[in-house]
Amino acid sequence: MAVQKKMFIPDIQPGTRIDEVFVLVEARQGQARNGPYWQVRLQDARGAVDGKIWSPVSQNYPELPVGEVVRVAGSADLFRDQLQLRIEQLEAVTAPRDQIDWSLFLPRSVREPEEMLLELEELCKRELHHAPWRKFCRKILQHPEIRSRLLLAPGAKSMHHAYIGGLLEHTLSVCRLSLAISDQYPEVDREVLLVGAVFHDLGKAWELDAGIQRDYTDPGRLLGHILLGLEVLEPFLAKNDDLAPGLKLHLKHLLASHHGTYEYGSPSLPKTSEALILHYADNLDAKVNMTSVLVQALPEETTWTPYQRSMERQFYRPERTPKPETKRPAAANRTERPGVRSFLHELQPKYADVNENGEG
């Protein structure tokens, strides 16, 4: 029998009694003055929340089933302006994994990854006029392993676009931003900038596990996504004799410098106009996504988000400018495109924390 959800994490308010199912994504033990406790993190398709199992209840759990669906009973409180669950009971759900509706627990992009990957390919085909660049992008995006990883990869562990399809969503946005900025500056090499935008975060498909916990892989922890991305691209660059050495070098610089500063893990500082544009486009999209996710997750009557350590501030939901009224066209004049699918549904994670490999 499939697990049914009744309440998603963004709907939980302080003082609410909880008897719900979530995925247990993290669990670690700690020691307080009154005894040992468990610090846990729970997730569903629309958010994540921290919780604690205090002593003496914690002593009933020598271990916890991380990565499994669990039923949690307890209450919700505020701790340092952050929602936190006080857990009184936690048990693994016994339903077979193939009978669980995982769409209730794993955050996904509002768009299908296959659709976004196709759009990325079409963008390269349309905007890249230098044949070696077109060939380079086509070979990489159509490589079976790279393609399968891109379709599942999140954009980050917990900061921005931290959900299935998040990497493709972020990549498309950075590509559009980069192209729009290059329209303002005709001297910019629009094509190498676009290729850099397409592959700037490619290494994240190897840095992060696309599973329930979105944890760092061993290569991700040891090397980071910038070096991993350069490593994946190197064989394609080496085999492409049509690309001028100077173009290959510039592309590598774009990837190596896109984090902008040494503080955030960039092996190099941006040293070309194209590298600066890519860095700011990447950072802008990450920050706007994080802010939008936080504000959209607020209850209707709340205007301020909890304090965000990663950006050292709270965010405010301002009043929006009213949209002008438009008359609906008469029924006889309306035409609808057949087969148009709506991908609009809520899914965003609620909190953003600093990740260990920097931001962006």
Rank of each mutant, 00 (worst) to 15 (best):
R126M: 09
Q59M: 12
E207L: 09
P299T: 11
V93A: 09
G220I: 12
Y185M: 14
R80L: 10
E127K: 13
L24M: 03
Q39F: 14
L202F: 11
G51I: 06
T303S: 15
W54N: 14
Q31N: 05
D189F: 09
V232H: 01
Y264S: 11
Y351C: 00
L64H: 12
K252P: 07
R341V: 12
Y37V: 05
E312P: 07
E234C: 04
G224Q: 02
D209W: 08
A332H: 10
L247I: 14
V110Y: 10
P329Y: 03
P322T: 05
M311G: 06
R190C: 09
D98C: 05
L141D: 00
L278F: 04
L151P: 00
V40N: 06
Q142R: 09
V25Y: 11
R97W: 02
K135P: 01
V188T: 11
S55R: 07
S158M: 14
G47D: 05
S148F: 01
L223K: 11
N283P: 02
R28H: 04
A297M: 09
L202C: 07
L194H: 06
I12H: 06
R221H: 08
G211W: 12
Y61E: 04
V3M: 06
P62L: 15
Y216P: 00
E121T: 03
D282E: 02
Q142E: 11
F199P: 14
K125P: 04
K350F: 06
S178H: 03
G260S: 08
K327A: 13
R33C: 02
L141Q: 03
R317W: 07
G265L: 01
G47R: 13
D215Y: 08
S257I: 06
D218Y: 04
P324D: 14
L152K: 04
P245K: 07
A153T: 11
E91T: 04
F22D: 01
R126A: 12
G15A: 07
H225R: 01
G220E: 10
K327C: 04
V354F: 13
Q59L: 15
G229M: 01
D242N: 14
Q296I: 01
A92G: 03
G211N: 15
P154F: 11
A281E: 07
D218P: 09
R147T: 10
H170D: 02
L24H: 04
G203D: 05
T291E: 11
L237K: 00
G246S: 15
V49H: 08
S158T: 12
V340M: 09
H259S: 14
P36W: 06
V93N: 08
E300G: 15
L278W: 04
E346P: 00
R221V: 12
L24V: 01
K157F: 08
E300Y: 00
V69T: 12
E114C: 05
P186L: 02
A2E: 06
I100Q: 11
Q39C: 04
L237A: 02
T326S: 13
